[in-house]
């Protein structure tokens, strides 16, 4: 953590704090809700990108990890007798962190089969995992089973969601730029060649799963403490697919692409509300058109600033 980090981090945190106040005072609740959902979606898509985009391991279980995080955090603050002592910003923060860690552990367990499976087969296993989590929760009476868990303290504010989104982005970006990120890319490209470059592919795959599911768990905890209520249907297979769409649309392996994908998938349906019942026809149609226009995702394998730098150098070359 160098000086530059603080020079950037302090104004960002201050700005988020100010924005938080501004949103609460002046912006209507519906818009704020969309903005919050965007933040949570960004955490989900960026984290899934590590596994799906960088490491090339097709996971369809992200909602499952989110559920683990959401329920563990919400249980700590709501169900446990000691719950009230968690009902402060610090307490909720700790609970959300615990949710993330629990999800990370789950990610470790799910990462293990990924050592033997790939492609469609891995997708099926992770899909199965997500469903198992949902059904287990459905059957735990203590957290409300199918009725869900109400009365969760609504303490995850704009500020906390976006601080976590920033942390997620920063951590993932650092990872992708490190040797770990390069190892993941190479195993996406050619696993056997990666192994014969001296890369312990098993270790890196499991690491990717753990980190990715940790952040999915954080997103789950934030979600629970923003909604004030969770039920198993919030973490269905559809949610996992939605996150995959964000990643694929933004561009595999591109963190900024994931952010853009998350924003589009979250915001676009809101803009289409005027279409009423045709909304859910037009929305997928737009996604299809976007994918046809940019089959590698909006940003391809690149980050947004790399695209601009490339264009600039092209212009220079032409001039």
């Amino acid at each position: 953590m160098n000086k530059r980090f603080f020079l950037i981090a302090i104004p960002v945190v201050a700005a988020l704090y100010g924005l938080d106040y501004f949103l609460n005072e002046y912006i209507n609740e519906y818009v704020v809700r969309v903005i919050m959902n965007c933040g949570i979606a960004c955490i989900l898509s960026m984290s899934l990108n590590l596994v799906n985009g960088c490491a090339g391991q097709f996971s369809l279980g992200h909602a499952g990890f989110m559920a683990v995080g959401a329920y563990v955090a919400a249980t700590l603050t709501t169900v446990f007798p000691a719950g009230p002592s968690f009902q402060s910003h610090l307490g909720v923060g700790m609970a959300i962190l615990s949710g993330g860690i629990a999800a990370g552990l789950a990610g470790y367990l799910v990462g293990l089969p990924s050592l033997r499976l790939r492609g469609d087969y891995l997708a099926i296993v992770t899909l199965g995992f997500g469903e198992i989590i949902r059904i287990v929760i459905l059957n735990i009476e203590a957290v409300g089973g199918p009725r869900g868990l109400p009365g969760i303290p609504r303490l995850s504010s704009f500020f906390w969601i976006y601080v976590w989104a920033a942390i997620t982005g920063l951590v993932l970006f650092r990872i992708i730029r490190s040797s770990v990120g390069r190892a993941l890319l190479s195993l996406r490209e050619d696993e056997i060649a990666a192994e014969s470059m001296g890369i312990n592919t098993a270790k890196y795959k499991v690491q990717a799963f753990v980190i990715s599911s940790f952040f999915a768990g954080i997103a789950g905890g934030l979600f629970a403490h923003y909604q004030g209520f969770v039920d198993p249907s919030s973490f269905s297979f559809n949610r996992s697919v939605e996150v995959v769409i964000m990643v694929v649309m933004g561009g595999m392996g591109s963190i900024s692409g994931s952010v853009i994908g998350a924003i589009i998938v979250t915001v676009l349906p809101e803009f289409l509300r005027f279409l009423d019942k045709f909304r859910m026809v037009v929305f997928p149609l737009i996604l299809i058109i976007l994918m046809l226009l940019r089959p590698m995702g909006l940003l391809g394998h690149k980050e947004i600033w790399q695209l601009f730098r490339f264009k600039r150098s092209l212009k220079k070359a032409v001039a």
């Binding site: 890319l185 190479s186 490209e189 050619d190 060649a193 990666a194």
Partner: peptide, 14 residues
């Protein structure tokens, strides 16, 4: 067995 989507330099890094 090269990594087709990575650049020459990135391949060498690996």
């Amino acid at each position: 067995g090269i990594f087709p989507n990575l650049t020459v330099f990135e391949n060498l890094l690996m």
